Simulated scan of single mutants.
Amino acid sequence: MNYGRKTPSTYRSNHSVYSHTTGRSSTNLHSIKSRSMRSVRVPWYQRPILKNNQYIDIQKNSMLIGIFAIFLALFTIGTAIFDIYCLAMAAPGSTHYGYYIISYEFVYVGNKFVRNMLIVFALFSLILGIVILFTSILLVIALRKEYERKILPWLNTFAVFTIWRSLALIFFAIVNDLIFAYNIIMVLLWSVALVVCIYGWCVVYSLFLELTNLTKLEDLAHLRMGTMASLHASAANSLAGSRPTTPHSTVSTMPVG
């Protein structure tokens, strides 16, 4: 079975707003899905976390989350570069000028190991931000064309990114002085961003499960149709082979004496 091809969405028995052409009936797929889900027990990790209701539209929210992830990746890259620059400029024992442009009083200059951990968090955030930027662009393309297999890279990398940034936020909030405006703003912005990240991952994961289940049901329907067609063909061939043939009558001519 090919789980990577285009699959139409069946939310509210309408065609997908992102699909341009589709020849399959979403109503039939929805009825097949309802009958199959009643007869098959789905594991808990394969059940959608969120479902469509009057407040949530999974498809539109997934597209919005994809766009949000692109801007979040750009923000992460920018702040990570700035943090690495500030930590390098404010290294203990370094001499530099230009305090009239920026003051490095908000930068941590205490324990060497803590400072190195801040650099590590910033460096890996920079790398993950670049990865999220590419996977988010791929996610937007996959959502427009409904290729559920191409959603997987974003789900995996964004989960790692969210966990990493959560640890970085906790560490950043503990070791840095929250009397400076930059530190306070970063803690508040990342607190809100991580809440949106968790919600967004749940939305996209729910859409991914819906598309994957529809693809499986469609493959099962095609398999049943192919089996029935082959059975009808074999039955027709057997009837044609067992049909009795009428023998030709032979007429003997007697000589007239």
Rank of each mutant, 00 (worst) to 15 (best):
Y182S: 13
R149S: 13
T157D: 12
I185D: 12
L123H: 05
G129F: 03
I130T: 07
G129V: 01
D177I: 05
A168K: 07
S136Y: 04
F158L: 05
Y205N: 09
I151R: 10
V187C: 11
V187K: 00
C197W: 06
Y147S: 12
D177L: 01
W201H: 13
S136D: 08
V203I: 14
V140G: 01
I179T: 14
A142T: 06
I132H: 00
I130W: 07
L189C: 14
T162A: 15
E148W: 02
Y147P: 07
E148K: 10
D177T: 03
V114M: 15
S166N: 08
V195N: 04
V120P: 03
L152N: 13
T162M: 09
F172H: 15
F113E: 04
F172G: 13
L152H: 07
I163R: 02
S125I: 05
Y199C: 06
A142R: 03
D177W: 03
P153Y: 07
T157A: 14
E148I: 04
R149V: 12
V195D: 02
L133D: 09
F121I: 08
M186R: 11
L152I: 12
L138D: 09
F171T: 11
S166Q: 05
A181N: 10
I184G: 03
A193F: 10
T157G: 07
Y147L: 14
M117P: 00
T135A: 08
I119P: 02
F134P: 02
L123P: 00
I198H: 06
E146R: 13
L155D: 07
I184M: 12
G129N: 00
M117H: 00
L128K: 06
V114A: 12
L123S: 11
S166K: 03
F172I: 01
I170C: 08
N156G: 14
W190F: 08
I179K: 01
K145P: 04
L194F: 08
L118H: 03
I174D: 09
V192G: 10
L128P: 03
L139T: 08
N156H: 10
F161W: 05
T157S: 13
F158D: 06
F113I: 05
R144P: 02
G110F: 04
I198M: 08
N116C: 00
I137M: 10
L152R: 12
W190V: 01
A122H: 02
I174A: 11
L152Y: 14
Y147K: 11
W201R: 14
R149Q: 07
A193T: 13
I127R: 01
P153E: 11
N111D: 15
T162C: 07
R115F: 01
F121T: 06
Y205P: 00
V192F: 13
L138M: 03
F180D: 06
Y199M: 11
E148D: 07
V196T: 13
V196M: 14
I179R: 08
S125K: 03
L139D: 04
L126I: 05
S125P: 04
L123W: 09
